[in-house]
Write a protein that binds this DNA or RNA. Sequence first.
DNA 1: CTTGACTCTATAGTGGCTACAGGGATTCTA
DNA 2: TAGAATCCCTGTAGCCACTATAGAGTCAAG
Lengths: 140, 140
Amino acid sequence: MRYRIGEVARLSDCKVETVRFYEQMGLLPVPARSSGNFRLYNESQLGQLRFIRHCRSLDIPLEDIRRLLVSQKHPEENCADINQLIDEQIDRVESRMQSLQQLRKQLVELRSQCSGKMPTSSCGILQGLSDCACHYPAER
Amino acid sequence: MRYRIGEVARLSDCKVETVRFYEQMGLLPVPARSSGNFRLYNESQLGQLRFIRHCRSLDIPLEDIRRLLVSQKHPEENCADINQLIDEQIDRVESRMQSLQQLRKQLVELRSQCSGKMPTSSCGILQGLSDCACHYPAER
DNA sequence: CTTGACTCTATAGTGGCTACAGGGATTCTA
DNA sequence: TAGAATCCCTGTAGCCACTATAGAGTCAAG
């Protein structure tokens, strides 16, 4: 069974352009071509594309996906690297969560400075944003 | 008092290239020039740059910052738009927090599938990533 | 007079796609 | 069998907010 690009895109929940992009990035093998020069994919290539999409849904960067694909091709090797890669991804996600937490706090604090019914000249939000005291505490 | 670009960059905690970039984006007024063609900034321009950096530290997009700068130039107008802009930013941050929460859960679940001491052929993580069951529940 | 720190412009790269433009292939309908 | 609709092709440029580089010029200190 062979699929054309639109079909693999649909079956792996991404756009046609994205499939071509992955090929260009070397994440997908160069596919066979039909007589009319259309890309033709088999089950294994569809599987690989789905693997990539699954990784991307976990926000794993393309470089890391590349490493995972290499690991997959070496079944006898130890999988410690894979575990480490996922641990690092979890760390990245947690650290982003922390910054967002902090960010939210600052934004809510800023928001509380104004009721929204002022002329901009006395808007607490604009004043808060102009004030460098909270952003650069060392400066005054 | 006039500052050269390196100084305003230092005083507003960003890189020299970033200052030039903001100028190019029209977020900073075109500065005066010295006889040797160096950019020269005054206090007010430094203030505006700090305002921008403060907004960026809250992850407010440049387009929104542009709107805030315009509002600042119209002190008599009502500040409802500014409040709405911040509310939208809070919404964006909260929705990103939620996706990260979800992401973390999935990654931790995936991580639990392997001890890290297997050959890659039986690594639970690789198997989990190859499995489309969790990512495309509708498909089987 | 040279060194070194600073600045200038212009251009390209980052990540992960997305969106054209301008054509060819295939398939469906009349 | 003609024409239309839908797919597909390559190549290039755009998105965001910078960052980095090349190759040159400016300026103050020693």
